[in-house]
């Protein structure tokens, strides 16, 4: 995935079944953000793989004061990339055929 300066990692073991999964997000490179970033640490949250939109979560982070509005896209993209990877891994681990 593209280096957005924002890192998103799994915050729990993925059993491949749960639709809600714990993620952890933190800023690795504040220079890649457009707005001034206040170093608050890592943000832990749960994300529903089945029906949630990464951009909506990013918007909630902005509204909660973690990021400025100008960075909502980069935060959303970082979450989206990680979610795509988790889904891709899940698809790969499904046993082929019956």
């Amino acid at each position: 995935a593209e280096d957005t300066g924002v890192r998103v990692e799994l915050n729990e073991e993925d059993d491949g079944k749960k639709s809600s999964i714990a993620l952890k997000l933190w800023v690795e490179d504040p220079k890649k953000l457009k707005g001034k970033y206040k170093d608050t640490g890592a943000i832990e949250f749960t994300f529903n793989l089945a029906n949630e939109d990464p951009e909506v979560v990013a918007q909630e982070m902005v509204e909660s004061g973690f990021f400025l509005d100008c960075d909502v896209k980069v935060v959303g993209k970082s979450i989206r990339d990680r979610v795509a990877l988790i889904k891709w891994r899940r698809e790969r681990t499904v046993s082929p055929g019956n």
Binding site: W26, A42, F45, E60, M61, S64, F66
Partner: peptide
């Protein structure tokens, strides 16, 4: 060294914690 909890109006919980050690190694 402490964790803080922020609850968004939509009901989502954000928990602020120290940045993982792995991040420090990469810099």
């Amino acid at each position: 060294s402490t964790t803080a909890q922020v609850v968004h109006s939509a009901g989502r919980r954000f928990i602020v914690s120290p940045v993982p050690e792995s991040r420090l190694r990469e810099q």
